[in-house]
């Protein structure tokens, strides 16, 4: 059980890092316009980057610094909430570009969506496992 929860914590760290830096460098939004100004999707990218950074810090703290299983369970639960925010940021909280075949719709939105859903699922599993470990000990 402990081994599985440790793997889940590590997976959450990797996924948070992927959401944070991936949104910035791998599956980023549309490039700037010819005049150098940014489109709306850029601000969605910035927000997801910020949320990803919070996810990364929390998951690292949960994995490396916290020993109390109850606290770990609580942090895992909070990761779910933040990941849910990241999930709805592109196009729902912050509008993306006009055409859905543009990079922000075709690449960034689905990538953020998939990673966020996996974080939510892993977060839920980690939260339950840490609770179980707490009751077992």
């Amino acid at each position: 059980m402990k081994k599985i929860s440790l793997i889940l914590d590590a997976v959450l760290c990797v996924l948070s890092a992927l959401l944070c830096f991936g949104t910035k460098y791998l599956f980023h939004a549309c490039p700037p316009k010819e005049d150098g100004s940014w489109m709306a999707c850029h601000w969605a990218e910035q927000t997801v980057f910020g949320l990803g950074l919070v996810l990364l810090i929390l998951s690292l703290v949960m994995t490396c610094a916290i020993k109390d299983q109850k606290v770990k369970s609580g942090i895992a639960l909070s990761l779910e909430g933040i990941a849910a925010m990241a999930l709805v940021t592109p196009n729902y909280l912050i509008h993306l570009c006009m055409m859905t075949d543009m990079r922000c719709h075709a690449v960034m939105k689905p990538a953020v969506m998939i990673i966020s859903i996996i974080i939510i699922l892993c977060g839920a599993a980690a939260s339950v496992l840490h609770r179980k470990e707490e009751t077992e000990s």
């Binding site: 316009k33 709306a40 570009c97 006009m98 055409m99």
Partner: peptide, 10 residues
């Protein structure tokens, strides 16, 4: 022309 929303033409 590219409008305020996006850099691509429609």
């Amino acid at each position: 022309a590219s409008s305020g929303c996006c850099s691509l033409a429609v």
